[in-house]
């Protein structure tokens, strides 16, 4: 897996998304494909190393969902990365559900999608960008051991207890590393 240095806040992607939503512009979708399909494949291969067929299927499925749901995308509620991450995550769960691991009547797409947020306002978009930049910068500075547990959970889709088994660490250690990482990224809301 390659780590790409250049990231996001690419306005050309947001432009492409707007064109897909408003003008049903297929060329704009190919632009999104070029950027996101390799990321979706990497995301799937992280969970199931070597499962290239699954990665291809899910990458295609996600791009089709982006096309079909484009009118639902609201930049004030979520950044494009976050929106596409949630679609890819749901598609990955759905694929695994249909292929045995999580056989169930529950369709993750029905509830795992981002909730409509009545409070979304234009100021939120700027705040969101600042939050994202902070998280991006914070991730870079995390110690390896904390990056490792975050990757286990977010990229590989492992639960805290699965991560603890695979890393050979006590569950408490995994939990505290994740909490520590999240607190450094300032994403924890104080109750």
């Amino acid at each position: 897996m390659n780590t790409v240095s250049e990231t996001t806040t690419d306005t050309s992607l947001l432009d492409a998304m707007t064109k897909v939503a408003n003008a049903r512009d297929t060329r704009a979708l190919t632009h999104l494909f070029d950027h996101y399909a390799p990321r979706i494949r990497a995301f799937c291969l992280a969970a199931q190393p070597g499962a290239n067929l699954m990665a291809d299927d899910i990458a295609q499925e996600v791009m089709i969902r982006i096309w079909n749901k484009a009118h639902l995308y609201n930049p004030a509620t979520a950044s494009l990365n976050t929106w596409i991450f949630t679609i890819a995550r749901n598609a990955r769960i759905d694929y695994m559900r249909k292929n045995g691991r999580y056989q169930s009547d529950i369709d993750p797409e029905e509830f795992w999608s981002e909730m409509a947020d009545e409070n979304a306002d234009p100021f939120r978009e700027a705040q969101q960008q600042r939050d994202e930049e902070r998280i991006r910068e914070g991730l870079r500075q995390l110690p390896n051991e904390q990056q490792q547990v975050l990757s286990k959970v977010y990229l590989e889709g492992k639960s805290h207890s699965e991560a603890s088994e695979e890393l050979g660490l006590p569950l408490g250690t995994v939990k505290s590393r994740i909490r520590l990482a999240l607190s450094k990224l300032s994403v924890i809301i104080k109750r």
Partner: peptide, 23 residues
């Protein structure tokens, strides 16, 4: 409150997602 917490957690996932690619 929990919705906001999940929104922020999703951003962490999105950043990790955006920085790994495989062609």
């Amino acid at each position: 409150q929990c919705r906001e917490q999940v929104r922020r957690l999703n951003m962490v996932g999105a950043e990790l997602f955006a920085t790994h690619s495989e062609t």
